[in-house]
Amino acid sequence: MTEYKLVVVGAGGVGKSALTIQLIQNHFVDEYDPTIEDSYRKQVVIDGETCLLDILDTAGQEEYSAMRDQYMRTGEGFLCVFAINNTKSFEDIHHYREQIKRVKDSEDVPMVLVGNKCDLPSRTVDTKQAQDLARSYGIPFIETSAKTRQGVDDAFYTLVREIRKHKEKMSKDGKKKKKKSKTKCVIM
């Protein structure tokens, strides 16, 4: 069974824990209790493949930012979460993405942009803004509501699919490099 290491990042209060708990335990946590770091595991079937999701729910508070490099190193894919009623959390996505790329030393890291709290009427981040940002990053965008469960499975499952595509691409690139290195030079 394939294991996928997913990391949920975003500013404090955007609903990272609520999304994760909704996926794992099928219930909505409405009281806000700032996370330092929590880890969850769940076995699911995605596109006919049974897999184990190892999900790291991270601290959004700035005082825990020193811990970010460590979990970013171990993560295979990242859910970059903002709240649709919090423009600052949307603007912060850029910083999370840049930090992930720096730590992973790669421009090509599996990510999904997630606009959470889409059940709320007080939207300050337009869907088109988020779609445009995701398009500019070359990553999928999904709106979710941890409260109603809308888009929750889709967000995590899409990230797994992005990781699969990335692994497939990397193995193809690896095979191309191996083929090239088999060419021999004969000096007579």
Score class of each variant (00 low, 15 high):
residue 59 A to C: 09
residue 136 S to W: 07
residue 107 E to I: 14
residue 88 K to E: 10
residue 166 H to N: 12
residue 169 K to C: 11
residue 25 Q to R: 10
residue 166 H to W: 08
residue 61 Q to C: 09
residue 71 Y to L: 08
residue 102 R to G: 09
residue 135 R to G: 05
residue 163 I to W: 01
residue 100 I to Q: 03
residue 83 A to P: 13
residue 69 D to R: 03
residue 178 K to P: 09
residue 88 K to P: 02
residue 8 V to A: 01
residue 66 A to Q: 08
residue 117 K to P: 00
residue 156 F to T: 02
residue 37 E to C: 12
residue 50 T to I: 05
residue 121 P to W: 05
residue 118 C to R: 03
residue 185 C to W: 02
residue 184 K to F: 00
residue 58 T to K: 03
residue 46 I to C: 08
residue 104 K to Q: 10
residue 76 E to W: 15
residue 73 R to E: 14
residue 132 D to I: 06
residue 61 Q to D: 12
residue 134 A to H: 02
residue 125 V to L: 12
residue 166 H to K: 07
residue 70 Q to Y: 04
residue 93 I to C: 02
residue 14 V to I: 12
residue 8 V to F: 02
residue 104 K to T: 08
residue 129 Q to P: 04
residue 132 D to F: 03
residue 54 D to M: 01
residue 114 V to M: 05
residue 27 H to C: 08
residue 113 L to R: 00
residue 38 D to P: 00
residue 41 R to S: 10
residue 34 P to R: 07
residue 142 I to R: 02
residue 183 T to F: 01
residue 118 C to V: 08
residue 127 T to P: 10
residue 94 H to Y: 03
residue 162 E to P: 00
residue 16 K to D: 00
residue 144 T to A: 04
residue 45 V to M: 06
residue 75 G to I: 13
residue 112 V to Y: 00
residue 86 N to F: 01
residue 70 Q to H: 08
residue 31 E to Y: 10
residue 5 K to Y: 00
residue 131 Q to T: 06
residue 122 S to V: 09
residue 171 S to C: 14
residue 159 L to T: 01
residue 96 Y to I: 15
residue 155 A to H: 00
residue 141 F to G: 02
residue 157 Y to T: 15
residue 155 A to Q: 01
residue 132 D to Q: 11
residue 66 A to C: 07
residue 137 Y to E: 10
residue 126 D to H: 08
residue 144 T to D: 02
residue 97 R to M: 15
residue 137 Y to P: 01
residue 174 G to P: 14
residue 44 V to T: 10
residue 153 D to S: 14
residue 12 G to N: 02
residue 86 N to P: 00
residue 34 P to M: 09
residue 88 K to S: 07
residue 51 C to Y: 10
residue 15 G to I: 00
residue 17 S to N: 13
residue 72 M to A: 09
residue 31 E to N: 13
residue 121 P to N: 10
residue 44 V to R: 08
residue 122 S to R: 08
residue 106 S to I: 10
residue 82 F to D: 00
residue 98 E to Y: 01
residue 113 L to Q: 00
residue 138 G to F: 01
residue 70 Q to M: 03
residue 19 L to P: 00
residue 151 G to E: 08
residue 109 V to S: 01
residue 124 T to L: 09
residue 167 K to E: 07
residue 186 V to L: 09
residue 77 G to E: 00
residue 73 R to W: 06
residue 74 T to E: 15
residue 174 G to R: 04
residue 181 S to H: 08
residue 134 A to D: 03
residue 118 C to G: 11
residue 86 N to S: 11
residue 90 F to G: 03
residue 48 G to Q: 06
residue 146 A to Y: 02
residue 28 F to D: 10
residue 34 P to V: 09
residue 95 H to A: 06
residue 71 Y to W: 07
residue 46 I to L: 06
residue 114 V to A: 02
residue 49 E to C: 05
residue 116 N to R: 00
residue 188 M to V: 07
residue 181 S to N: 14
residue 41 R to V: 06
residue 35 T to M: 05
residue 180 K to D: 15
residue 12 G to M: 04
residue 59 A to H: 12
residue 111 M to E: 00
residue 31 E to P: 10
residue 69 D to Q: 05
